[in-house]
Write a protein that binds this DNA or RNA. Structure first.
Lengths: 133, 133
DNA sequence: CTTGACCCTATAGTGACTTCAGGGTGCATG
DNA sequence: CATGCACCCTGAAGTCACTATAGGGTCAAG
């Protein structure tokens, strides 16, 4: 399997695959006579794992750790749980932040009626003279 | 006012203030005999505006645009509305993504009971052999 | 024999900072 | 008067997770 095929098979760009190799996440594959990378099934599986983890929002460092844990089937599941739970907590923080933020913005949008900046509630809210934020 | 005071007054780090100056967001202030930056009230107000905008999640490019609009009180409020509405839409997309993601992770966490990796539902879900994701 | 899709490496760019290296300034204390 | 310390300066590099660019090589089809 060449790099383009691997990319299509996993929904990853060719550049990203080479990047993962440079980062040590994906082992360097064999090369053919033309110096093209030749991938095996194991590479496809590992890249799929990485892709899924990334899609779930894990950082590359977390992916590295998950791979390390997954590589030894005798490892405790607790490590995986800790990483996941921490990640969920992080998501919860982001959700709360974004929700608050959205409320703030929509409130401004709704009250913004004036035709000119001088009457704009959004600009007013951002300006330091206003004390209501 | 020196840079450290300005930073404390606005909740911005000294490095970030210098960065904003280099980016052209904050005008370069006068310097005293020791080559220290000396800020006026106008700087404090502008930096507060930037800080609030950033806290509301606007990108620096959006902040640039908001500043440009705010600088002329005769401008239409519509430009500000457009930027804000676009930003709200972006936030909605992120909220949806994060919520879906969280559901996925929590589902895995709840079902992860085995003491070893071999039985770990999270790893299983990430691994390409599983077909249920 | 040329076109086009694909592959290679090495390097730089993205956003919004943060950190580091290597210095200078200003004030209080010993 | 020396020393320490907090604060200030510049310029460059590092962060994250890629993405893009430049400049080339390979291969099969028409």
């Amino acid at each position: 399997m060449k790099i383009g095929e691997l990319g299509r098979a996993t929904g990853t760009s060719v550049e990203t695959i080479r990047f993962y190799e440079a980062e040590g996440l994906l082992p360097a594959p064999a090369r053919n006579a033309a110096n093209y990378r030749v991938y095996e099934l194991a590479h496809l599986e590992r890249l799929s794992f990485i892709k899924r983890s990334r899609d779930l929002g894990f950082t590359l460092d977390q992916v590295r750790e998950l791979l390390r844990l997954a590589d030894d089937p005798g490892n405790s599941c607790a490590g995986v749980d800790v990483i996941t739970a921490r990640h969920v907590a992080e998501i919860d923080r982001k959700l709360a932040d974004l929700t608050a933020l959205r409320g703030e913005l929509v409130r401004r949008l709704d009250s913004c009626q004036g035709p000119i900046i001088a009457d704009c509630r959004i600009i007013e809210a951002l300006s330091p003279k206003s004390r209501d934020v």
